[in-house]
């Protein structure tokens, strides 16, 4: 492997580990939180922020910045952990998760710098991303917009309104990342409400699709490098992931969609996550 690529992947791996440690730190501060969907998105987030997105950390409002919208806003702890690692927000904010008058609640809020939209009510982010992509094209701002959606989130019909409009308007400057961890709040998607076949759905709506292992940083980086997958076409990266990835007791169970985190749980998680 190219040494630069190897160094990048090693660096991203370290960031992903730090991200997960930050997530659990926040959850401990809040007493509970969405460990499952935050952990499944870790590699996607670090590859975005430390490899793909054009940002100016000291100038979070720079008009030419690439946009990232976390539509599956319940993974806000992971997004804010990423912004901490990127130097956009202070590390101390992690200890204010769920706090009184904190800018850092369960869902993304524009009270924090680097948060592009108040999301978390599911099925909103992709429409907002379509608007950002149109705004970029219309004003020749030349930025790319990325939106991360959950798989259960795709139950919301508004996503498909947005998907249809993105293809119709030929938004090659828009990419959706689907965190396909196959588990929603009540249980496996296959039992609650199946979204399969997912790639076929996006293709049928006019999107170019690539499927990857969402924890394989090389694959994630390659996919992010490859978008737009076809000019004039929105891109969908379907990332197969593991809910709760990185902490064995939280993996692959809807019980850790959101759960309580006390000192003992936190310490068990940190042991598994290893040193930063």
């Amino acid at each position: 492997m190219d040494p630069a690529r190897k160094a990048l992947l090693e660096s991203l791996e370290g960031k992903a580990r730090q991200l997960r440690r930050h997530v659990w730190r926040a959850l401990r501060a809040g007493g509970s939180g969405h460990a499952g969907g935050s952990s499944s998105a870790a590699e996607l987030l670090v590859a975005l922020y430390f490899h793909r997105l054009r940002l100016r950390p000291q100038e979070p409002d720079w008009p030419g910045r690439d946009r990232f919208v976390l539509s599956k806003g319940h993974a806000n702890a992971a997004l804010v952990a990423t912004l901490v690692l990127a130097g956009v927000v202070e590390e101390s904010v992690l200890d204010r998760f769920y706090g009184f008058e904190s800018p850092f609640g369960m869902h993304p809020d524009m009270k924090l710098p680097g948060i592009e939209m108040c999301t978390g009510a599911l099925g909103h982010g992709l429409s907002i991303g379509v608007g950002m992509a149109l705004g970029s094209r219309l004003q020749a701002l030349h930025f790319h917009t990325f939106v991360m959606v959950g798989d259960g989130e795709l139950h919301e019909g508004s996503n498909w309104e947005a998907a249809m409009s993105a293809a119709h308007h030929r938004l090659g400057n828009l990419t959706v990342l689907v965190d396909y961890n196959r588990i929603c709040q009540s249980g496996p998607l296959a039992e609650v409400m199946d979204v399969a076949p997912l790639a076929e759905k996006w293709r049928a709506f006019g999107w170019q699709v690539v499927e990857i292992d969402g924890h394989d940083l090389a694959a994630v980086a390659d996919a992010l490098d490859a978008v737009p997958l076809r000019p004039g076409c929105p891109s969908a990266i379907i990332a197969h992931t593991t809910k709760g990835k990185g902490v064995s007791f939280a993996e692959n169970t809807h019980l850790w969609h959101s759960n309580n985190v006390d000192e003992a749980v936190y310490n068990r998680a940190l042991v598994e996550l290893g040193v930063p």
């Binding site: 008009p63 946009r67 592009e116 939209m117 099925g123 909103h124 992709l126 429409s127 907002i128 991303g129 379509v130 608007g131 950002m132 992509a133 149109l134 705004g135 970029s136 219309l138 004003q139 701002l141 019909g157 508004s158 309104e161 947005a162 249809m164 409009s165 119709h168 308007h169």
Partner: peptide, 24 residues
């Protein structure tokens, strides 16, 4: 500067919000 979004009101509001964040 005209965007047709079809019979999809939820998307229309979201798209408008996204466009507004870019200064439109």
């Amino acid at each position: 500067r005209f965007v047709e979004l079809g019979i999809a009101e939820q998307n229309a509001i979201g798209v408008a919000a996204g466009m507004a964040t870019t200064g439109l």
